[in-house]
Amino acid sequence: MKLLVIGATGTLGRQIARRALDEGYEVRCLVRSQKKAAFLREWGAELVPGNLCKPESLPPALEGVSAVIHAATARATDSLSIRQVDWQGSVNLIQAAKAANVERFIYLSILDAEKYPKVPLLEIKRCVEHYLAESGLNYTILRPCGFLQGLIGQYAIPMLEGQSIWVMGTASPTAYMDTQDIAKFAIQALKVPETENKSFPVVGSRAWSADELIQLCEKLSGRDAKITRVPIGVVRFTRQVTQFFQWTWNIADRLAFAEVIATGKPLVAPMDETYTAFGLDPSDTTTVESYLQEYFERIMKKLRELDYDKQKKQKKKSDKVDKQRNYPRF
């Protein structure tokens, strides 16, 4: 089966492409920059130039394709807006996939998108879900809510570098999941008829609060965290400021997501039905504890090795100085 992956250079998209290749699929990736996507070609994927916001570039990318996995979203720093990429780009892709008679369409949305009509990204995701369901395509919608990979930059690295961990006071606990596991569900959806024309949550086994994550990182690293708590009012003010400038609209729309976090309601969902439908074993899913433990064990070992090398070099330098001092002069 030939598979087209959209958003393959992103945190989740690259794991989907990797998983598909590992399972023997013929993978094609729609990319805006061949240079940034060079690693995908090295893995064995076919790269085709294209842009969701340029409908004319999509039919060539879809030629001979049996299935599409759509994991693209606008980045905060993109020149294109969320509305252009996540809405119009998705509509363009769905229409092109329909015209190309694509057999399966997997869409990565966000958990509870329908509950927040005032948050631009979530409202757009909800609208795309509805548009896809009405398109006539054979679809599956997956709804994650947070990636384990994001915890490294948000919690682990600041702690190791002695910097502040920024936490919103009322942040909602979140059921994070490893992007590799989400990719497993995306590829499995292609094989299981029970997942057709349905939506599924794809989240971790439990929701973790910021304080729980900080305590876990402290335990695993043996270090104390510096915490800076940010009131929601500051985030709201920042969003208002960024809305004044066109080049910061994406940032403003992303900051609106703080309204979801500020509710304090856990971002989590039952996964029993999902695991049953996909035929996957919950025990094979990476937990927050195991993911962070593996990270800290690896990084702490590296830090010890670097410290040892540093001490060794200092000792050699010191020994050299001592020899020079004791060397007889004529």
Rank of each mutant, 00 (worst) to 15 (best):
Ile299Arg: 15
Arg104Ser: 08
Ala113Asn: 05
Leu160His: 09
Asp307Lys: 14
Ala76Pro: 01
Gly136Phe: 10
Pro158Leu: 10
Asp78Ile: 01
Leu58Arg: 07
Glu46Met: 06
Gln243Asp: 11
Leu267Gln: 03
Leu108Gln: 07
Lys115Ala: 13
Lys118Ala: 10
Gly279Ala: 08
Gly279Trp: 06
Ile227Thr: 14
Leu306Ile: 12
Asp319Ser: 00
Ala189Ile: 01
Val27Leu: 04
Tyr25Met: 04
Leu151Trp: 09
Ser135Tyr: 09
Gln215Asp: 12
Ala8Gly: 12
Ser81Asp: 02
Gln154Leu: 09
Gln314Val: 00
Ala72Phe: 03
Glu114His: 13
Lys54Leu: 15
Leu132Gly: 02
Pro117Arg: 02
Trp43Lys: 05
Ile187Glu: 00
Arg223Leu: 12
Leu303Cys: 10
Leu303Met: 15
Val202Ser: 04
Gln188Phe: 00
Gln314Leu: 11
Ala38Asp: 15
Arg83His: 14
Val5Trp: 03
Ala45Trp: 00
Glu134Trp: 07
Phe245Thr: 08
Val234Ala: 15
Met159Asn: 10
Ile124Ala: 05
Gln163Asp: 13
Val230Lys: 08
Val91Met: 02
Thr140Trp: 01
His70Ile: 02
Gln88Met: 06
Ala99Ile: 06
Gly233Arg: 11
Asp284Met: 06
Ala20Lys: 01
Ala258Tyr: 14
Arg104Tyr: 07
Val68Ser: 02
Lys313His: 10
Gly24Thr: 11
Ile124Met: 11
Ile94Phe: 01
Val48Leu: 14
Ser205Gly: 10
Ile94Asn: 02
Lys115Met: 06
Cys217Phe: 07
Leu306His: 13
Leu4Phe: 05
Lys184Gly: 13
Val230Ile: 15
Leu62Arg: 09
Cys29Pro: 02
Val68Asp: 01
Gly233Gln: 11
Ala96Phe: 05
Lys312Val: 13
